[in-house]
C-alpha cells in the first residue's frame, strides 16, 4: 500500500507519459462477417488531438471500441503506453478503463440520476472520498459550464447540455486518453464547435484526445491531425498544423 502510494506519487511527479497509442496491423471482423478494420497501423502520440473520420462503416467506432477493450481484435496489437492492451486479462480491464474517458453521441447518461451523480459515477467506482469527489465533480461541471445545473436530471437539459454532462463525466477522473465517438452528431454547428473547444482544452492539459467524427467541415477547420478510414482501411493520414 505504502509502496503503491510512493510509486504513484513518484511517477506522477516525473510527468508520466499520459497516453500514447499504437495500432499495429490490427484487424477486426464481427460475428456477422463484417470486416470493420483491416490491417490498420497507426501511431498517436501522447498529449495530441487526433480526428478519425470516414463514412459510416469505415471503422471509426470499432477503432475506439478496440481501444476501450469493448471488442477484441482478431489480429495485431494495440499498444497503449507501450503495453499491448489486447492481452490485458479481464480482471485488469476495470483499472485500465478508469484511465480512459469515453464520450458517445447518445451520451449514455442515467436518467434517474442527477447531473452531479452522473458525473460522480467514475469517482465512486474508483472509491474516492465523497468530499474529494465533490470537488472534482464541481470542477468538471464548471469546466463544461453546467455547475448551476448539478441537481437537475438529464431529461431537463438540452441535447448540447447533455453532451457536456457526458464530457464532464468522461474527464472527471482525469483520464490519460479521452475518446469521443461522434460527440457532435446531434448538435448544431455552433454547439459542435463549443464541444470541440472543450476537447482542445483537455488536450492542452496533457490528455490524448481521439475523436471520431464524420463532420469533415468542422474537423478540417480545427487543423488537427486527421486519420481517414474507408471500409476498414487507412485511406489518408493528414498531419495537424495546430498540434504543435
Amino acid at each position: 500500500m505504502i509502496y503503491d502510494r510512493l510509486r504513484w506519487n513518484l511517477l506522477w511527479r516525473r510527468s508520466w507519459p499520459v497516453g500514447s497509442v499504437d495500432f499495429r496491423n490490427v484487424s477486426k471482423r464481427y460475428d456477422n462477417g463484417f470486416e470493420a478494420l483491416k490491417q490498420i497501423s497507426v501511431s498517436i502520440r501522447e498529449g495530441s488531438m487526433t480526428f478519425l473520420t470516414g463514412h459510416s462503416g469505415a471503422g471509426k467506432s470499432t477503432f475506439l471500441r478496440l481501444l476501450l477493450r469493448l471488442e477484441h481484435a482478431d489480429r495485431g496489437a494495440i499498444a497503449v503506453n507501450g503495453v499491448d492492451v489486447t492481452r490485458l486479462p479481464e480482471r485488469a480491464l476495470p483499472a485500465y478503463r478508469r484511465n480512459l474517458g469515453a464520450v458517445f453521441q447518445d451520451h449514455h447518461l442515467l436518467a434517474n440520476r442527477t447531473v452531479y451523480e452522473n458525473v460522480a459515477l467514475p469517482l465512486r467506482v474508483g472509491g474516492m472520498r465523497e468530499k474529494d469527489a465533490a470537488r472534482r465533480v464541481r470542477a468538471a461541471l464548471s469546466r463544461v459550464g453546467l455547475l448551476e445545473k448539478e441537481l437537475q436530471f438529464p431529461r431537463a437539459l438540452s441535447t448540447g447540455e447533455q453532451q457536456r454532462v457526458g464530457i464532464a463525466r468522461a474527464v472527471v477522473n482525469r483520464p490519460k486518453i479521452l475518446l469521443a465517438d461522434e460527440p457532435t452528431g446531434n448538435l448544431d454547428p455552433e454547439l459542435s464547435r463549443d464541444i470541440m473547444t472543450l476537447f482542445q482544452q483537455f488536450r492542452q492539459v496533457g490528455t490524448t484526445v481521439i475523436v471520431a467524427s464524420h463532420d469533415r467541415e468542422l474537423i478540417n477547420s480545427l487543423g488537427f491531425r486527421i486519420i481517414e478510414l474507408s471500409q476498414g482501411q487507412l485511406l489518408r493520414d493528414i498531419p495537424g498544423v495546430a498540434d504543435g
Binding site: D4, L11, W16, N81, G82, P89, N99, K176
Partner: peptide, 13 residues
C-alpha cells in the same frame, strides 16, 4: 515495449 502488464501504474485506493 515495457515489461509492465498495465499501461499505467494503479493509483492506491
Amino acid at each position: 515495449e515495457k515489461v509492465s502488464t498495465h499501461p499505467w501504474p494503479s493509483p492506491p485506493r
